[in-house]
Design a binder for these strands. Structure first.
Length: 805
RNA sequence: GCGGAUGUGGUGGAAUUGGUAGACACGCCAGACUUAGGAUCUGGUGCCGUACGGUGUAAGAGUUCGAGUCUCUUCAUCCGCACCA
């Protein structure tokens, strides 16, 4: 029989399912390995070729680790709350749960078609009440700790989606063409800022890609500086500003406050009120994008008010401008035009004073922004002299002086904002909070969870910016423990369910706790977490936050959830562009599997290149992998379906190749170099095919190495070789050192760094012996021309370089 | 603008610590075979040159006996951040 993937692949998928081959035993004695894929959102369009890339990589590792004696946790589930299902429900008037189930069934079928070794008994779904019961429970833990609170601050409102968005989501939506505006609304916030420092510090010990850690660091955005209190001329209030450069304070020649700053009305003098009000109105109408447009010219108006520079005692004007953001620091700055490009631009546009405070400036060409190395000038009052100091000395000295004078204090600022956690949506976890008729807010008892989503007629958001739940009186009006009240109608964002799903996989059926305590201690933390980089500052920072809260509450045993993280690179279409329906360059895994089989597909995705690199799809290249599998097949059975005859003893050469392959493939899998692992198995096969005959054991060993990559064909051939149990139950081979030692090695001979000859030597020859052998070579003699080398370099068993003048 | 990464044949890509550049595969060329297939097998294939040889890892310089690998400069591509005071 020839190799027919379409016959053997379903056969083995059924076998694995019927025999529960990949069920993870609750055996806490064995060493464990928790290998996690980012679980998918089950969209209506099914898997694309990007999903199997990461899933194949983790599957190879999972299968290999099992054979290496680890108890492997390798689960899969569905991140199924979210907007697309709700939009579909709006369009078709079907319950999101129905379309969800259909999509999940399709995803599951596709994943099984690819032969992944998930423990399907642990499958979870974030929209299942038995799951979101615990999402709500964790929310209540945050609530009780004061980390979840309602707020009336302006939020990011998306007009088209009729819902609010978290800061982390805004950019993405704007890129997709949505309009996002600031609008004040009462919303639930999670106090992620309380964990800013912990989230930052935790990054140091994580084995994550550098760029990803860097993105999180930037997002958290820690900076060190000081708050200074500027007295306001004629007012009792002071204007507090944050600066990282107090050393430049002598050069502060005006102040700028954000249009939304609470002191604007007080500072503004009647003569300027009209201008200021107009400016504020214009600013409030601009979207965030317009306001932060970079190339935009600076705008602003004078308030008529003055502040006092605490160092110089001089009166300086206070302006308002939208280049100062209300959401960062105190929403007000001291402007030092000599030292800051933005302030410089503003000062020159409006003719404001520029005071030079750093030596070597080239005013009026532009500001000098120097963090280090600059020398300070013009900075002296009766008590404080910064002249001649370098920047860091001057910063320290100024902060100390301000603190002593009661005019300021050392401050650490973060860019990270609290997490906007409620959405005006139906298809999400209800927030388990009740508002009594007295306006009190009470949490539903943990024992009464889950608070289940009601069925609704219409999924249309109410026009008022409230969730569809607000229109269901029978659900909203709620009597709880004899108290009449109204339930919170906002739901949680899609990110909620994915904040802790990796914990639920550990004990998906646990009824008394969100995760079984003993099992959690055994399985955590995740040894390898693999997924796309698009979650860098969303899912990955939210999940770390929840985990750290749970850790501080003593509910989990590790301070970080994902010890090692890896991003697979995107797979682009054959045209080198991102796959999209509109470009018509989408490759469907179903088609590829139908044409070539799942094993070839898996191998191809791994052979394309390094896992983390962006790669172009090329269907033609799959043929190479198909051919490889057919040649593997021929090791066991010939074209006519006859069993191949094995020999009893392999040649030494065969054993050398085999054991080198064992060593290299094992190492490559370990460091996720799947492309080179496959290349080495190909080399091994090429060598095998040159042999007259092979031993059964050598063929079996190669099959075991390959079985993580192409599991179906390996199972089939394993069975043909007479085994009755699954190849996945084999023990991973170990290279025998005896066969790794070479009896002859190639010594490269260079003359002046150029390769002139290669000779075979026995390993371990010293320089003198090598030189003697080299001199025997005709080619070498030709280049030496009787001259003596002035220098000889020997890299033992590799290279001999002779330097001749 | 700032930060990060990458740059190797016609193509995808190999090359722990500086030590034979181009493994493996696609494609292409030549040949064999046939149950004519989306086959299989054998050989070749960086570039220039008939051979000896020369040359070659984005460009340029440097360190070194020796550089794809280390240092500096420049260029290109990709990704992230972007008025964060």
């Amino acid at each position: 029989m020839a190799y027919r993937p379409e016959e053997i692949e379903p056969k083995w998928q059924n076998y694995w399912e019927e025999n529960h081959t990949f069920k993870t035993p609750d055996d806490f004695q064995k060493p464990k390995y928790y290998i996690l894929d980012m679980f998918p959102y089950p969209s209506g369009s099914g898997l694309h070729v990007g999903h199997p890339e990461g899933y194949t990589a983790t599957d190879i590792l999972a299968r290999t680790k099992r054979m290496q004696g680890f108890n492997v946790l390798h689960p899969m589930g569905w991140d199924a709350f979210g907007l697309p299902a709700e939009k579909h429900a709006l369009k078709t008037k079907t319950h999101p749960e129905a379309s969800n189930r259909k999509n999940i069934d399709n995803f599951r079928k596709q994943l099984k078609m690819l032969g992944f070794s998930y423990d399907w008994k642990r499958e979870i779904n974030t929209t299942d009440p038995s799951y979101y019961r615990w999402t709500q429970w964790i929310f209540l833990q945050l609530y009780k700790k004061g980390l979840a609170y309602p707020s009336d601050a302006p939020v990011n409102w998306c007009e088209e989606l009729k819902t609010v968005l978290a800061n982390e989501e805004v950019q993405d939506h704007v890129d997709q063409g949505y309009t996002v505006v600031k609008r004040p609304m009462r919303q639930w916030m999670l106090k992620i800022t309380a964990y800013a420092q912990k989230l930052l510090d935790g990054l140091d010990d994580l084995d994550w890609p550098v760029h990803l850690k860097e993105m999180q660091r930037n997002w958290i955005g820690r900076s060190e500086g000081c708050t200074a209190f500027f007295a306001l001329d004629g007012l009792t209030e002071s204007l507090d500003i944050y600066t990282t450069r107090p050393d430049t304070m002598f050069g502060a020649s005006f102040m700028v406050i954000a249009p939304e700053h609470p002191l604007v009305d007080k500072i503004t003098k009647p003569a300027h009120k009209q201008d200021v009000d107009l400016y504020r109105r214009q600013a409030s109408l601009k979207s965030d994008l317009e306001r932060t447009e970079l190339q935009k010219e600076k705008s602003g108006v004078f308030t008529g008010g003055y502040a006092i520079n605490p160092l110089t005692g001089k009166k300086i004007p206070v302006w308002i401008s939208d280049y100062v953001l209300i959401s960062y620091g105190s929403g007000a700055i001291m402007a030092v035009p000599a030292n800051d490009d933005r302030d410089y631009e503003f000062a020159t546009k409006f003719g404001l004073e520029i005071v030079e405070i750093l030596e070597g400036g080239e005013l009026p060409k532009g500001a000098i922004v120097q963090r280090v190395g600059g020398t300070i000038i013009n900075s002296q009052n009766s008590e404080l002299n910064l002249n001649g100091l370098n920047v860091s000395e001057a910063i320290e000295k100024t902060i100390l002086w301000l603190e002593t004078a009661g005019l300021g204090k050392r401050t650490i600022q973060y860019k990270l904002r609290d997490w906007l956690f409620s959405r005006q949506r139906y298809w999400g976890e209800p927030i388990p909070i009740l508002y009594t008729e007295q306006g009190e807010q009470i949490a539903i008892d943990e024992a009464d969870l889950p608070l289940v989503l009601p069925d609704v007629e219409s999924y249309e958001p109410s026009g008022t910016g409230e969730s569809p739940l607000a229109t269901i009186d029978s659900w909203v009006n709620y009597t709880y423990k004899g108290i009449r009240g109204k339930l919170e109608t906002n739901t949680m964002p899609q990110w909620a369910g994915s904040c802790w799903y990796y914990l639920r996989f550990i004990s998906p059926d646990c009824q008394h706790r969100f995760v079984d305590e003993e099992a959690e201690k055994y399985w955590m933390n995740v040894d390898l977490y693999l997924g796309g980089a698009e979650h860098a500052v969303l899912h990955l920072i939210y999940a770390r936050f929840w985990h750290k809260v749970l850790y501080d509450l003593g509910l989990v045993s590790t301070s970080e959830p994902f010890k090692k993280l890896f991003n697979q690179g995107m797979i682009l279409g054959e045209d080198g562009q991102k796959m999209s329906k509109s470009l018509g360059n989408v490759i469907n895994p179903d088609d590829i599997v139908a044409r070539f089989g799942a094993d070839s597909f898996r191998l191809y995705e791994m052979f394309m290149g390094p896992l983390d690199r962006v790669k172009n799809w090329n269907t033609d290249n799959i043929t190479g992998l198909s051919k490889f599998l057919r040649r593997i097949w021929s090791l066991v059975e010939d074209d006519h379906g006859n069993a191949v005859t094995f020999c009893s003893q392999d040649s030494l050469e065969t054993l050398r190749v085999l054991h080198r392959t064992i060593r290299d493939v094992t190492a490559d899998i370990d460091r996720l170099y799947f492309n080179t692992a496959i290349a080495k198995m190909m080399e091994c096969l090429n060598e095998f095919k040159k042999q007259e005959a092979l031993s059964k054991s050598s063929v079996e060993t190669l099959l075991i190495l390959l079985s993580g990559f192409a599991p179906h064909i390996c199972e089939e051939l394993w069975q043909k070789l007479g085994h009755s149990s699954s190849i996945s139950q084999c023990i991973w081979p170990v290279a025998n050192e005896e066969y790794l030692i070479e009896n002859m090695v190639t010594l490269v001979i260079q003359i002046n760094g150029k390769v002139r000859d290669q000779i075979q030597i026995t390993p371990g020859l010293n320089q003198e012996e090598c030189l003697k052998m080299a001199r025997a070579s005709e080619k070498v003699q030709k280049y030496l021309e009787g001259k003596e080398p002035v220098k000889v370099i020997l890299v033992p068993d590799k290279l001999l370089n002779l330097v001749v003048k």
